[in-house]
Measured scan of single mutants.
Amino acid sequence: MAAGGDHGSPDSYRSPLASRYASPEMCFVFSDRYKFRTWRQLWLWLAEAEQTLGLPITDEQIQEMKSNLENIDFKMAAEEEKRLRHDVMAHVHTFGHCCPKAAGIIHLGATSCYVGDNTDLIILRNALDLLLPKLARVISRLADFAKERASLPTLGFTHFQPAQLTTVGKRCCLWIQDLCMDLQNLKRVRDDLRFRGVKGTTGTQASFLQLFEGDDHKVEQLDKMVTEKAGFKRAFIITGQTYTRKVDIEVLSVLASLGASVHKICTDIRLLANLKEMEEPFEKQQIGSSAMPYKRNPMRSERCCSLARHLMTLVMDPLQTASVQWFERTLDDSANRRICLAEAFLTADTILNTLQNISEGLVVYPKVIERRIRQELPFMATENIIMAMVKAGGSRQDCHEKIRVLSQQAASVVKQEGGDNDLIERIQVDAYFSPIHSQLDHLLDPSSFTGRASQQVQRFLEEEVYPLLKPYESVMKVKAELCL
């Protein structure tokens, strides 16, 4: 049975990233139509530049190519590739079939990587351009969430054990800070992308030097003109047959890092959902379990974690691919890159769409948070109580021993009897502590235990987050809708 299948058929496997999760716009960027249309555009740009620099290419040939950029006979191309065992030459023939007058000058002087690699770089750039505003929107939604809850005390956790208090907004800023680093890295790697350009079979530009009869300047002009037509500021000066596969490492490393950030955020949300302090959106008709109707599973956060793990592992592909590119190139890269580049971007696209949807509907339960604080705060307040007693004339050592005994009794009630923490009640009825009984409410005010959390939130948002989001103001209103 021949390899390949009808990918629109229910009898043929289709990647869930495309069929179930990723956005239509990201799927289109990695589609065959987008790819092969870009090949034709690159052939047109090459012909236009070659004509401008004096090669015998007519206006009629150029116009014929322009008129057929979208006229792609995919069936013919597939048949040609089956016959020739070469995808680029299959599309040269297919393009030439609908451009008979231009057929002889299509791909003039070029090698397969002229269309293959340059198209990949265009796709990487455009895919990054799709991700950047999506990530900015996630940051914006979380920034709104953090600002609104900047002063809401909550129990902090280290080692997932109760620690000092923080605020809900401050905790959210930990998430935002990681995503801001990801946004900066995505922008950097996007701006650092260079075009492969017009380089020939081993990167020496020998074929173009021959076409222009040894004119170095025209060869350099050709490279520059096509690079500018493709919208790049610069091209690699040095290439082998391909652009260095280190570029793929750079791009997928940034995406993998984004995956790590999203995994951490969504894990926190899942843990908070278990504590009943916070939940992701839950639709009115949504079913959490087929057997347990009360369940409210954090399905979206779980999906993000599941896909983020996949995204983090994909960076190993370009690392290994770059390491086995012998001399000017081997074909070890080809099949692998067809999979890992598309999957990385479709996965990143999915987790950003999902995280935006989550961040637009996060639900906080202040009463649950308050109750958990009441359970733990008495123990945390013991040092403040000791200091207040010393100020009232008591002995630190005597007070410490009193607190120690009462704390152990209260802990026994919590752990052995399943009761509430009654340390404060014990202190309130103990005559030894009568000098500070009137101060206990103040000493137990949760806001006095959150330090500068709310001020940190305000400063972080104003100095770091809002300036970073400013270039994306025009796209901030787009909502994230999930079908599944």
Rank of each mutant, 00 (worst) to 15 (best):
E283L: 12
V324T: 11
L108C: 15
F208N: 06
I57E: 00
H437K: 12
L209C: 09
M65C: 09
S289N: 00
E283P: 01
D178Y: 07
P366Y: 04
F30I: 09
T313G: 12
K224S: 12
H107Y: 02
R296L: 08
K415R: 08
H107F: 00
A342E: 07
A431L: 10
R309L: 04
D117L: 01
S19L: 06
I106T: 08
L272C: 08
C27K: 08
E425K: 11
L179R: 02
N357W: 05
E81T: 01
T111P: 02
T313A: 14
N421D: 05
P293R: 01
S112H: 00
L17E: 00
E425Y: 14
E64I: 07
K276P: 01
D422I: 09
A381Q: 12
P24A: 11
E302P: 01
N71Y: 13
V251M: 08
L131N: 09
P366W: 06
F195K: 00
S448H: 15
L331A: 04
L183Y: 11
S112Y: 01
A235G: 13
A143E: 03
G96R: 00
I373F: 05
L186W: 07
M278H: 03
V478L: 15
A163R: 00
L461T: 03
S151C: 11
Q456R: 04
E60L: 13
Y21V: 01
E283Y: 06
L443C: 07
L444S: 04
L135P: 04
L174V: 14
P446G: 06
D59T: 12
P56N: 11
D422W: 11
L362S: 06
S447D: 13
T204H: 06
D420A: 04
S395N: 13
S207H: 00
L155M: 05
D73F: 10
L108M: 12
L165S: 03
E425N: 13
K264T: 03
Q164M: 14
F208H: 07
Q375S: 06
S67I: 13
K391Y: 11
N353C: 14
Y294V: 03
N353I: 12
Y432T: 09
E148D: 13
K229H: 06
Q416V: 08
G259P: 03
H107N: 01
H86E: 00
G393L: 06
Q286N: 02
A77L: 15
R190L: 11
F345D: 04
G419Q: 12
V247N: 09
S261R: 02
T382W: 01
R459W: 10
Q184N: 11
G231V: 05
G5Y: 14
A308T: 13
L314F: 14
R309F: 07
H107C: 05
F195D: 01
Q41W: 15
T382I: 09
A431S: 13
V247F: 06
G54P: 03
R459L: 12
S323D: 02
E50C: 08
L155V: 02
T242H: 05
S395H: 09
M89K: 01
M380V: 03
R33H: 07
K391D: 05
E302K: 05
G394F: 11
I105H: 13
I62Q: 06
I385P: 04
A388C: 07
A342R: 08
C98T: 12
A410C: 07
P298W: 01
V251L: 14
G8A: 15
R85S: 02
Q409H: 10
A411R: 07
F345Q: 05
V198S: 07
A110H: 01
H7M: 15
L275A: 13
W326M: 15
A49F: 00
P293Q: 00
L443K: 03
Q221R: 13
E370G: 09
R372G: 05
Q375L: 07
P281R: 13
T227M: 08
M292A: 01
P446K: 04
T242P: 11
A150G: 12
L255T: 11
M65T: 07
F208R: 02
P162Q: 12
D445V: 11
R337C: 00
W326P: 00
A143V: 07
S289L: 01
F157Q: 01
L55M: 14
K477C: 12
K402E: 06
G8R: 15
A230C: 06
F460A: 03
Q356E: 11
W175N: 04
Q416G: 12
D248Y: 01
T167W: 02
G393V: 06
T111R: 02
V198K: 02
T313H: 08
T244F: 03
H442I: 13
V92K: 02
R300C: 15
N357G: 12
S12D: 06
I139W: 01
E50K: 05
M316T: 14
Q408M: 05
S253D: 05
V189E: 09
V315L: 13
H159V: 01
I385Q: 02
V219M: 14
N421E: 06
G259V: 01
E370S: 11
D317E: 05
I436H: 04
L44G: 08
M76I: 14
R337D: 03
V364P: 09
E376R: 03
R374W: 07
I358Y: 05
I358T: 14
T239Y: 01
L132Y: 14
R83E: 13
H263E: 03
W39I: 08
D445N: 13
R270V: 04
H217V: 13
T350W: 04
Q164C: 09
E280K: 01
S151G: 13
H107P: 00
C113D: 01
I287T: 14
E220R: 10
D32M: 12
C266Y: 03
L165V: 10
D129G: 13
S306K: 03
G361W: 07
G200R: 01
F145G: 06
R426K: 11
F145N: 07
R374E: 05
G394C: 11
L55I: 14
L352K: 05
L211N: 14
L132G: 14
E64H: 09
A163M: 00
F36S: 14
N126R: 10
T350L: 12
Q221F: 11
K75S: 12
E360C: 07
F95N: 08
C483M: 14
S474Y: 14
D178M: 01
T382M: 12
P16E: 07
L121H: 05
V262N: 05
I139Q: 06
